[in-house]
Structures are given as C-alpha cells and as structure tokens.
C-alpha cells in the first residue's frame, strides 16, 4: 500500500516521438485510478513507465517515499496484470503464482501459505495443478490476478486486463477486480480503452488524448463537467452531442435556433448528452428524425438539429414518432466549449 506521486513525467522515444507529455499527479493510498483514452493516446506507455518496463525521459516517479525512476521493475514493489495474462505456459497455476515469491527468496512455507490464501480468495484452489492451457479465459485472468496478489505489492497495475474476455465475463470480472482491490486496499492503476470500465471501476479517471492528460476527475465529474470536447465525446455512450454554434449578445444560435445563455461572443460548441434532452410540445428546438435504434429499455433517435447530427436517448414508451418533434434542452445540462481549442468555457 502506498501513494504514487508523479512530477513532470514524460516519455520521448529516440526517434523524437513524444508518447507522454509532461504530466504531474498524485494517487492516494488505496485509490483505484483508471487511465482511459483511445488507442495510441499514451495510456499504456504511462503505465509501463510506472512499471519500469519503459524508461522515463524526464521527471520523477515516487512510489511510497522512494524515487523509483532507475529501479528495476522487480524492485519497485509492483505487480502487473497483462492484457493476455502472460502466464508461464509450462508452469502449473500454483507455480505461476509462486514464481515471483521464489525469485525473491521467500521460504517454501511462506510461498505455500500465500498461494493457498490467494487461491482461496480467487476460488482457484481446485485448479492449482492445472496448466494455463487447460484453463478458460476467465480462469487465466484470475491466475494473473493471483500472481499479483501473492506478492502483496504496494501498487497494482492493470493493462487492459479484460479486453480478451467476452462481454458477460468482462462484466463479472470487473466487479470482482473492484471488490478485490477494495478488500486488499491496494493502490491500483488500471488502463482501459473502454469507457464503461472506466466509469464503473474508478475512484478517479484520467482521460488521455495524444499523450496528454485531458482531465482528471471522479467518474461523475468527468460525466457532468467534461473539460473538453474530447472528454465529452469520449466518455458516455452514446457520446455527447456537439453542435457548432455562434454566441452573440447572451444568445447561442444554431441556424434558426437560438438559446438564451450567458456567454462571451464568438464561435462555440454546444454540448448536450443524448439522455438529458427530452421531447416536449413546449420545446424550443425542432428535431428532424432520420433513424431509430431500439435498445429495449430505451431507444436511440438519430436525426438533425439545425442541420447538424444529433442523437436523442429517449425512454421506450411507444410514443408515436412523428415529424415536427420539439426538443427541450434543460439549461443545467448544457455545456459550452471553445470552438477552436475545444476547452470548456
């Protein structure tokens, strides 16, 4: 258990490509941080820098009160769960879990006790003598977790651990990982490109884009107050609607639609989540319906507002879908972003 403190950490590859722009942040003891972003955004690189699998170009990385920049991965007191589990194929489950302890010179009794305890926690006890090739995906995932747990590390690192599992198992493992992390109260950094995983698991989310951290916040902060159009469109499914608009004298105009909003004059982007708009005869925004996607509990209505693409997530109440629908935009759900930089206004 430990805090993680990062100061101006960055990564530049020898060919000059900057994978991670200088970033600073603190992670509290026992916190689960999710790094989320599209592929190539630098989230895995950042994780691997913390793990010691990638060199740190500049900045300081502290785990607990030690600067670990130049320590080997093995000396950093971390454990990592890989996307494809990286189990040693020729070792049994028990040996896979014991290997790290054995290399650290733990006694046989200690190893046996730890492995038994972890196996019980993960309900792997009947599988201890199996080889990874004889396990299912979910079981392998558990063994990878077990290998991390037995070491009692200060920090858990997860590199997209659920992306090789099917949807149902992913959901189940998500809950399991979260429970385990809470129970062991270990600080954890979790990398994923799946925003649902990020929202459901994180204490705090770091949204990354093109090597830079766009926003740090709790899941509800990220959802309620996205710091940029990138965060707004990346987090949430379906993504937030973003409309190009013009602010002018306390009004935001899109074509012939005008909303009353206090805002400095200029080009802006108006954001509103598909689930926060509603149909209302009193609505002020005309909606031109083009396509309906049934989701069961709700339906996604694709269409146009002021000539721009717009999605509405409406409850599936069998209301007739006619032309000439009017939408109302609740003032508290509107987000304004700068048209050029995409930053929140």
């Amino acid at each position: 258990m430990a805090t993680v403190s990062v100061t101006d950490i960055s990564k530049t590859y020898p060919n000059g490509a900057q994978a991670v722009c200088p970033a600073s942040f603190e992670i509290a003891d026992g916190e689960l941080i999710v790094l989320v972003g599209p592929s190539g955004c630098g989230k895995s690189t950042l994780l691997r820098m913390v793990a010691g699998l990638e060199d740190i170009t500049t900045g300081d990385l502290r785990i607990g009160d030690r600067v670990v920049n130049n320590l080997d991965p093995a000396e950093r007191d971390i454990a990592m769960v890989f996307q494809n589990y990286a189990l040693y194929p020729h070792m049994t489950v028990a040996k896979n879990m014991a290997y790290g302890l054995k290399n650290r010179g733990a006694s046989k009794d200690q190893i046996a006790a730890k492995v038994t305890e972890a196996a019980e926690m993960l309900s792997l006890t009947p599988l201890l003598d199996r080889r990874p090739s004889q396990l299912s995906g979910g079981q392998r995932q558990r063994v990878a977790m077990g290998r991390a747990i037995v070491r009692d590390p200060a920090l858990f690192l997860f590199d997209e651990p659920l992306s090789n599992l099917d949807a149902k198992l992913r959901h189940q493992m998500r809950v399991e990982i979260r429970n385990l992390q809470r129970r062991l109260n270990v600080t954890a950094i979790y990398v994923t490109h799946d925003q649902v995983e990020a929202m459901t698991m994180a204490d705090r989310i770091f949204v990354l884009n093109a090597g830079a951290i766009e926003q740090i916040g709790t899941p509800s902060e990220i959802y309620r107050k996205p710091a940029s159009t990138f965060v707004a469109s990346f987090m949430g499914a379906p993504p937030m609607n973003l409309l190009h608009a013009q602010a002018d004298a306390g009004q935001v105009r899109m074509g012939d639609v005008a909303l009353r909003m206090p805002c400095a004059d200029g080009a802006v982007q108006l954001g509103i989540r598909p689930e926060e708009v509603s149909f209302s005869p009193m609505g002020e925004v005309p909606f031109k319906l083009t396509l309906v996607e049934e989701l069961g509990a709700s339906r996604l209505l694709h269409g146009k507002v002021a000539g721009q693409d717009f999605v509405v997530n409406a409850p599936n109440d069998d209301a007739p879908l006619a032309d000439g629908l009017m939408l109302s935009f609740p003032a508290e759900s509107l987000h304004l972003f700068d048209a050029q930089s995409g930053k929140r206004l």
């Binding site: 793990a51 010691g52 699998l53 080997d72 991965p73 093995a74 971390i78 454990a79 990592m80 890989f82 996307q83 494809n84 589990y85 990286a86 189990l87 040693y88 290997y99 790290g100 290399n103 650290r104 290998r147």
Partner: peptide, 10 residues
C-alpha cells in the same frame, strides 16, 4: 509480455 512478467517477477 512473458519477458515483462518475468522481469516484474524478479
């Protein structure tokens, strides 16, 4: 990843 897992395992 096997190499990396082994490195982390010391």
């Amino acid at each position: 990843e096997l190499v990396e897992a082994a490195r982390i395992d010391g």
